[in-house]
């Protein structure tokens, strides 16, 4: 059984020109990324700002054009589809956006927003049937049907995001890409939305691509996690209790602020800033901040290779097993804060 989505060597650069005569600088957003999304799974993509995860989300749906590479959805090669065919395929792959306010047209009522996908795809419903469909959708996402006539500015953040989720479900998609759907919500609302997404996935047999910067959330919610750094996937690991093998993943995990005062870290695990995506180094992108970096790391870019069942790492020197005190591992970063500002 083929995977629902197969991404191979996906690339996306942007050319940025300061002025008409300046040389164009190349911003590498996504750099030779390959992975699969299995049917019915929840794949999480984690990374910090500039790692390319939002760009990747849009590339998977071909909302942005890739510079190179292949995207296969259910066996269909998206990059070769005409605009018209692509639009007809869209109902099967939908997106939930990060900012629930700006992703809803402020002049449309909830009802208008939910009926729009149908009219775009040329499906027209009688008024009564439309109203019923809207009611049904609203109750699926836990909203009162009275909210159908409300405008986005009258709803709370959580309610708006539920509308965004309902909109993504109107056309009964197979794949739902969620781009940081809870980032702008309060913690308690986030928990509600996550619980909703869990139940929807089970009920409607959906496949999720879940983008987030919150490693704890992704570990809780997803089956597998892909970690991105500066446009590349550095590790793909099963979510459940797997020891990370890439140094960046380890740093991310240790940087997370655990809400438990008995487990305090005395220092930050990782120093320095992320490098600019304008100047991706040859070799491993993380080498400049990595304690285990060697000469090889600066020269040859590590490929994503199988480490264990379902666990892939792109590293020349993966983290050794049983690191009892990960702190010592980051000796270099605590005594020698290396920093590189942007630009």
């Amino acid at each position: 059984m083929t995977a629902l989505v197969e991404i191979r060597r996906l690339d996306r650069h942007f050319e940025v020109r300061r002025s008409l005569f300046a040389r164009a600088k190349i911003l590498t957003a996504v750099n030779q990324v390959s992975f699969d999304i299995e049917r019915g799974e929840i794949l999480g993509v984690v990374g910090e700002s500039g790692c390319g995860k939002s760009t990747l989300a849009r590339l998977v749906l071909r909302l942005i054009e890739p510079t190179a590479g292949s995207i296969r959805f259910d066996g269909i090669e998206l990059t070769q589809l005409s605009d018209r065919h692509l639009r007809r395929l869209r109902p099967r792959m939908q997106m939930v956006f990060q900012d629930p306010y700006s992703s809803l047209d402020p002049r449309y009522t909830v009802e208008d927003t939910l009926l729009e996908p149908l009219s775009i795809q040329g499906i027209s419903l009688a008024r009564a049937a439309a109203r019923e469909k809207v009611s049904e959708l609203l109750s699926t996402v836990g909203l009162a049907s009275a909210l159908a006539r409300a405008y986005p500015h009258q709803l709370s953040g959580g309610q708006r995001q539920r509308v965004g989720i309902a909109r993504a479900l109107v056309l009964s998609p197979d794949l739902v890409v969620l781009d940081e759907p809870t980032a702008s919500l309060d913690v308690s609302v986030q928990a509600q939305i996550v619980t909703l997404l869990e139940s929807l996935q089970a009920k409607l047999n959906l496949t999720y691509l879940f983008i987030s910067h919150d490693l704890a959330l992704v570990s809780y919610f997803c089956d597998r996690i892909a970690v991105m750094y500066l446009g590349s996937i550095v590790e793909i690991l099963p979510a459940v209790r797997t020891q990370p093998k890439h140094h960046y993943t380890l740093a991310l995990m240790e940087s997370a602020l655990i809400p438990d005062p008995r487990r305090r870290r005395p220092t930050a695990p990782l120093a320095g800033d992320v490098l600019s995506p304008f100047a991706i180094p040859a070799g491993c992108a993380f080498a400049s901040r990595c304690a285990a970096a060697t000469h090889l790391c600066g020269v040859e870019r590590p490929l994503l290779k199988r480490y264990d069942q379902g666990h892939l790492v792109a590293c020349h020197h993966p983290v050794a097993a049983c690191k009892s005190s990960p702190q010592s591992h980051f000796q270099r970063s605590t005594t020698d804060d290396v920093y590189r500002p942007y630009g």
Partner: peptide, 9 residues
């Protein structure tokens, strides 16, 4: 919301 409309086809 423009992006959303495009994603709907």
């Amino acid at each position: 919301f423009v992006e959303a409309a495009r994603s709907l086809g």
